[in-house]
Every structure is written in C-alpha cells, then in structure tokens.
Design a binder for these strands. Sequence first.
RNA 1: UGGGGAUUAGUGUAACGGUAGCACGACUGACUCUGGAUCAGUUAGUCUAGGUUCGAAUCCUAGAUCCCCAGCCA
Length: 616
Amino acid sequence: MSESDRPRHFIQQIIDEDNRTGKWGAWPDGRPRVHTRFPPEPNGYLHVGHAKSIFLNYGLAEEFGGRFNLRFDDTNPTKEDQEFVDSIIRDVRWLGARWPGMRDDDPSAGVLYASDYFQQMYDWAVELIRKGRAFVCDQTAAQIREFRGTLTAPGRPSPWRDRPIDESLDLFERMRDGEFPDGTRTLRAKIDMASPNLNLRDPVMYRIVHATHHRQGDRWCVYPMYDWAHGLEDSIEGITHSICTLEFEIHRPLYDWFIRAINDGRTEDGSGPWGRRIHHPQQIEFARLSLNYTVMSKRKLLLLVKRGLVSGWDDPRMPTLSAMRRRGYPPESLRELCARAGVAKFKGTTEIQLLEHCVRDHLNRVAPRAMGVLRPVRVLIENWGEHGPADRVEWLDAVNNPEDPAAGSRRVPFSGELFIDQDDFAETPPPKFWRLFPGNEVRLRYAYLIRCTGVEKDAAGRITALRCTYDPATRGGDAPDGRKVKSTLHWVSARHALTAEVRLYEHLFNTPDPEASDDDVPDAEGTPAAAADAARAEAWLARLNPNSLTTIDDARVEPMLADAAIGAVYQLERLGYFCVDSDSGAPASSAAGDRRLVLNRTVSLKDSWGKQQSKG
RNA sequence: UGGGGAUUAGUGUAACGGUAGCACGACUGACUCUGGAUCAGUUAGUCUAGGUUCGAAUCCUAGAUCCCCAGCCA
C-alpha cells in the first residue's frame, strides 16, 4: 500500500485541521508549520517501540514539509550516560530520520539537549515563585508522599506552601548553589492538593541532585522534573505537536498548567509585566507499539543482558534496534511495520508475524540469492567421470535475484561431489514428499537433473553419502525431452563450499504474552512470601524459549560469500534470509578459504512443507 | 470506592448518521527451475442492554471489561 492511500490516522487528522485553521502559522516558505520531536532519555538502548515514535514524529514532519528534532531529555544525571546518547543517535540515523543541522561527518551535529535549556528553565521557575505559583518545600520525600493523599482521599497542603515569596526565592537560589544536601528541599508548583488528578497536587518541579551530568558536569545542583521540563523544552524549540504515549495523558493538564502559568502576565506583543508570551505546543498521546513473543520494558531487557540470558543489547534475539540491525532487519521493514500497525489510542499487541512479513517482503525484493546447506549430506555423482574428466568443474549461471532482473547473474561451481541439505532427502519418503529419495529424480537448482541410485552408510547405519546419477543433457536444469520433476533442490560443490557458522533464531519467548498475569505460576510449597513474590515477579523469565538460538557450525555456503560485507543480507534459496554477522572476519577475497563466516538467520522463508509436517 | 483513557473478524486498523472495508494470520486452489515469490478464493467482527432515527459501529442512557495515575523516574 502506498503512503498516500493509507487511511489517515487521528494525529494526521488533527494536523489537517490545524493546518486548515492556520493554528500554528506558517514557515517562511508558506507551508503551515508542523514541528515534531523525538525526546528520548539517554538511559538505555532504543527498541522497536521507540521506532514507532520516531517514524511517527519524523514521518509527520516529512509529510507536511515540517521539521523534526532529535532532542535528549537529559534531566536526570543519575541515570543517564554518554554511551546511551551515542547509541540512540546511531539508531535514529539508521532508521533514516533527518533533522535540521544533520551532517554525515559528525553524527551528533544538530542534536538537541534539554540540558542546554536549564538556565532558561531556572529563570522561568524563579518567575513562577515571584508570581506566587511555586514555593520551596522543606518536606522529606516521605512527608510529601504522606501529604499527597491517596487516589480517593484528598491531600493536605505542605506547611511551607505559604512561606513568603522572598524566602522561597532565597532558598531556591541556595538550592541551585549547592548549599543543601540531596532530598532536603524541593521546588513545588502551587496547584491544588485536593485535585482528583494526583499530578496536580503541588507537583515537584526541582529536586536537589549533587551528581555529575554527562554534559553539564557539576554546573547544576538542582534538576528539573519531567512535567516541568518537558513542555518548556517543546516550547523553546517551537514544537507544534508534542506526541507522547498514553500514560502521559493524565499529565497533560500539568503540561498545559505550567505553560499557562508562565504566560500569565505575558502578552503577544511583550507589553505585559512579564514580557512576551511563550509558545504553547499541543500534547497528543498515542498507544505505543507492543509485539507478542517478546518484552519491551527497559528494565526487563536490562535483566536479560545482566543475567547473560542473551549475549548483549545487540543479541539478535532482542527487540532493540541495535539487535535488529545486527540480525539483518532492514530499517525500511521496520518503517513498514509501524505504518501497518497504525496509530491509535487503543493499546493492542501487534503480532510478530506482521514484522516478519514486512522483513520478508522487503528482503525478497532486494536480497541477492545464494545457495548454502545447513546440515550437509554428501552427494556423489557416479557418472560424472563418464562424461568428461572426473575431477572437472563446471561453472553454471545462477540468477542473483529473480525479483530484480537488474541484479544480474553469477557463476557457481558444480562438480562430482556435492552437498545437499538433510531435509531434502528421505530414505523412505513420507506421503507428498517430492524431494530426493532412492529412485526419484529431482533438479539441482541451475544445474542438472539427478536421480538417486543408492545410499552409503557407516557401520552404525548412518548415511554417509547419497549415490546419484546426473543427466548430462539437462545442463542448466531443463530436460530436452520435456520431462518434469516435482522438486528443485539447493546444493553446493563440496570442494568449493565455504564452511560457515549459522545462528538460527526463534522467538525469544515461547508464549505470546510473556508478561501475562502470573496467576498460573505455582508457588513452591513452603516458600516464604517474599521469596514467592520475587519468584512471581520474574515468572516471565521462565517463559524464555530455550530454543531461541541454535548454532550450526558446519554449514556450507557457495564461495561467493567469502566477499560478503558485514551486515549484508542474502537469501539462501529455499531456506531464508541470512545476514553476515559482525563476529565474522573481514571480507578477504585473497584469503577466501580462511575467512571466518558467521551468518544470522534474519527470518526463514515461508515453508508450507515444514508447516504441513509439524502439523503431523 | 477518586480521576484519566480505551473497547470493530484470531491480531492490528478503517468507516466521522447511509452497502462494516483493508492488512497480517489461518485455510483452499492455480502457477512455478526456491514446497519461495505471485495470483485467485474461503474463513471470521461492531463489549452488553435499552433509547433516538426512515436508517446507529457512529448520537443518548445505563452497565461490563481492560489500561494508566499515589517517584524528589521519564
């Protein structure tokens, strides 16, 4: 489906309406202003859920000829780190988003940081104190919690709520200067301790944190809270549509309250006592992406990494963007996934099959084809020597991509000793098995028709080789007498094939919803309640799929792969798409035979035979 | 028990008072030098109960279910 005939989601409709009414004014080029942003906190790695937000925000800016900012919401120095900043920039760039000031020679050019606005935020906070809309509170965290009340009972005002403005001003300045230890005081907005929305019960705007910020160093001893900071960041950048996830819906009144409080006493032309009004963006909430058979929370992903249950943040089984990149998922397929999953306010779960469909759909069009066998069985062509030298090699033409004629063709070596896949042979074929079995004739892709004449076994009865004859008249794969075969197999020449390590992946979890309620997880008899709770809390770990990774270390692939670049994705015909993993050695045509080659199975091909088999 | 949201085939998403459609999945069949791809077809839905209306997924009333909120996290 093209971008234009996809139904317009509710945010596009909001923007259509805004543009119709001219709500946000226009850019210098006359187009209505649309300015979005992606505001990650640099405290972890990005996952597919973030990709949806990135594509939504960037896509909207692109669609309407607007702008998109990448801005780090780095307001909590205790959790953030430059490592995460770097990885996030890498991931957002990989997805294809563009922002003002972006450059190829400097990944971080044009990237924005909330911490650059700290002084402005501080000044506005002072303004709110002066206006009597904020105060310094000396309550401890526990007292604040106690005074906040509950979901059903109203809170009580802090005893410091009505302290003189000058006193708050003085204290706030000294908080900033580092005079007080962490946790001793906060700056709070003076709103409504009886509000049914707990976020409005005099929320904390600043807390004292003596920590080194990854960009600001030790310059600040007070750090703004999300609710105070976020709308101001958006305002400063001129964001029009501040798009966030559903859980912030109940924070929207606060988002608006803060900006209105600043604008109180300000006017459009700056003639008011507090100067010119500041920009007031519109917050819009949508449902984040969630996928089945995986988990998406940073905490859980971190636990998988910390416990060594995966090899790292970029373990190809992880739902992180770095993992998906390593696994070979093209960014275009992620964009397509997000587009197809849609944008709405219903919190649903998208089936992982949709992602796999998008990956196959894209890769089918662009991935060059190659042949490789995962579990090799030797095939001896008995009559190879009867039609020429027994050690001869024939180089046969193979199409690089049947979906793309421009991809051209290559030559693959054929000889009297080959490998085919175990799955393609059966000594006693089950019903509807069309592949190789004694007496049957099949085609070797782009090569010859062969017929199985016998099976060689070792003393233990294991098959060591298949004896076959080939029909020299069928070179290229077609029989001059017009006879048909039911099956075409992939193969490699034993002498020429490269050995590769292949990593096969399945879903990380073996149930669609690993985070489902854990009521069905039995408690061990006699465990203390606390231990039982802990066990229950991590019951999702018990749902990890023990077969999520299968490593094959003696797969054989055609020699052309010696030069495959790291990250390149190929289709191994009839098997699936495979990506050259970063654990591989560098491509080296000179030392082709020695290259360590590691392939990740990005996704298998649809396999109706396998499906039929597993149904029994 | 307070407040804020949500609910349409198995899954996700359209329809904005006028024929409930699309995609993925599943299942058939055709075709095929990938049991791939492609093509054709089948399957299956408006949370419930009332009401308004010529006509309701859409408007009204009542109820059900699910999610979010009591961090000096974001």
